[in-house]
Amino acid sequence: MKTKKAANIIFAVFFTVMLLLTLFAKDLYHLTLPKVAVEKVTRQVFPAEVTGPDGMVYETRRTVPAISKKALHGDIVYAVNETEDGAFLVENFVTTGEALEDIIEIKGGVLTGTKVIIGSDRQIGPGQQVLITEWDESVALHTARELGEDMEGYAAEMRNCLRNDIFYIVGVVVASVVVVLLCRKFCKGRLRLLKVPVLILWCILVCFFLRATIVLPGEWIPDKLIDWDGWKVNMERYPF
C-alpha cells in the first residue's frame, strides 16, 4: 500500500512537472506571440514640382523616407526594437507627407532603416513582444480586416474560423465531461489520489488550449503566461 501511495505521488508530481514545463516552454510561448510582418523605412522616389527662375513649373524627382500605408495606424507607426530577449514594439508618432500609390512619405518620427510593422495576425500594442515572420495568410487577413479592406474569401475564412471555434468549444466541453466521468468511475480506492492531479492537469490543458487557440481575442490575453508585470498592464487595459 505504501509503495502504491509513493507511486501515486511520484506519478502525479513527475507528470505535472513535465506538463508544466511543456506548457510553459519558451518555444511554445513564442508560438503564442502575435506574428507580425515588417518592412524597413526606405528612401523612395516621389514626383515633385519646382518653379524655375523663369517662373515655369518643372517636374522633377525627390527621394524621401517612405513606408507602406499598411504601417500607419492613424498617425502612429509601430517600430520594432530587437533585443536579446526578443522583438518588442515601440510606438512612434509620425508626420506624414505626400502619398503615392500604396506608400506614404514620412517627414518625421522614424528614421530611414527602422523596421516598422506592416501587418499582424492580431491586435498589437506598444511594448508588446512579437514574432517577426513573413507576410502570410493569417497576417494578411487580420491586416485587411483592420484596414477595412475587402479581401477575396475573407468572409468565408471568417465563417470557417467561427465554425471551427464552435467545434473546438463543443469538443472541449464534451472531453471535459468525459474526463470527469472517467475520474469518477476509475479513480476509486487506491487510485483515488489520482483524481485531483488528473483534474488539475486537465484544467491546465484546457486553459492552455483556450489560451493558445481561438476562444479569446488576442488583446484580452496577457503577453506571457507567467509575467506578473504583463498581467498587471493587461488588467489595466480591461474596460472594468
Binding site: M18, L21, T22, A25, K26, D27, L28
Partner: peptide, 13 residues
C-alpha cells in the same frame, strides 16, 4: 534539457 531544448519535451510526450 528541460528549459532550453523544447524538442526534448516534445519527444518525451
Amino acid at each position: 534539457l528541460l528549459i532550453e531544448h523544447f524538442y526534448v519535451l516534445r519527444n518525451f510526450w
